[in-house]
């Protein structure tokens, strides 16, 4: 009893008096975390304002009706399939990124470069998918932002975005309400997936930069691959945001 008291009452070393990093994390890595925190709040603000708009709308387009196209499949109705492919690509590229970070922990230059290359390929595939989806919607809507603003638009232009079981009555009696929802839905969709796509684009650029540095031996000379780890944090965050975008736009 008294023995254990002696052990636990030993003076605890104060890590906050300076001279060392209390969290054992470098300045750059900690700031990357705080940047991601602020970025999470930005994405949160966008997604929550989307949610608010959706909550005050009497009807809302059904994702199963809006997103059902797949490249080269014509008019076949394949809801959620294409976005599942995009999600798969992004998760996959997250795995290759974490493998690059892992190789960095062991100072294995070749493997870092190898996995970074796959991550870049995954990022580009994702962006290509998004480009296809936007092009497809552009063709269908006749624009990206600011469509469905003309009150004279016939209901046939947007009724196929809705689930008639839920929205039939409003579509018949107050088509303008449904048109306004369609307008809001697509504005939010392009803003949020566009903002996310911008993050993916800059992530790909960062990945290319660190790949070049890795191949040139910059990190080998520096003695550590922390930059790969920091960019990895950013890349995983982009994947994380997509998890929420996927849920909010395609599932709920």
């Amino acid at each position: 009893m008294s023995h254990s008291t002696v052990v636990t009452s030993a003076p605890k070393e104060n890590v906050w008096i300076g001279g060392r990093s209390p969290y054992n994390v470098s300045y750059g890595k900690m700031m990357m975390w705080f940047f991601l925190l602020s970025d999470a709040l930005t994405f949160g603000a966008l997604l929550i304002s989307y949610g608010t708009t959706r909550f005050f709308s009497a009807v809302w387009p059904d994702p199963n009706e809006v997103f059902k196209a797949f490249p080269f499949m014509g008019h076949a109705s394949l809801p959620l399939l294409f976005v599942s492919l995009m999600t798969f690509i992004l998760i996959m590229s997250s795995v290759t990124m974490v493998l690059a970070v892992h190789a960095g922990h062991y100072g294995d230059k070749k493997k870092v470069a190898y996995w970074l290359l796959w991550t870049i390929i995954g990022g580009i595939c994702f962006l290509a998918c998004q480009a296809w989806e936007w092009t497809h919607l552009h063709g269908e809507l006749g624009g990206l932002w600011g469509t469905f603003t003309d009150p004279a638009t016939p209901v046939s232009k947007f009724e196929h975005f809705f689930n008639h079981h839920n929205a039939g009555a409003i579509l018949d009696q107050q088509p303008l309400v449904a048109m306004q929802s369609t307008h809001n839905f697509f504005n939010y969709f392009f803003t949020i997936t566009g903002f996310h796509g911008g993050h993916v684009t800059s992530g790909v650029v960062f990945n290319i930069l660190i790949l070049v540095n890795t191949v040139n031996g910059v990190y080998e000379r520096r003695g550590h691959y922390e930059m790969v780890e920091k960019i990895g944090l950013y890349w995983h965050f982009v994947d994380l945001v997509w998890v929420f975008v996927f849920t909010c736009f395609y599932l709920l």
Binding site: V25, S26, Y27, G28, K29, V101, H102, Y106, H224
Partner: peptide, 10 residues
């Protein structure tokens, strides 16, 4: 900075 580098398996 590698002195602070905490990587799991640094």
């Amino acid at each position: 900075q590698s002195k602070l580098y905490s990587g799991v398996m640094a």
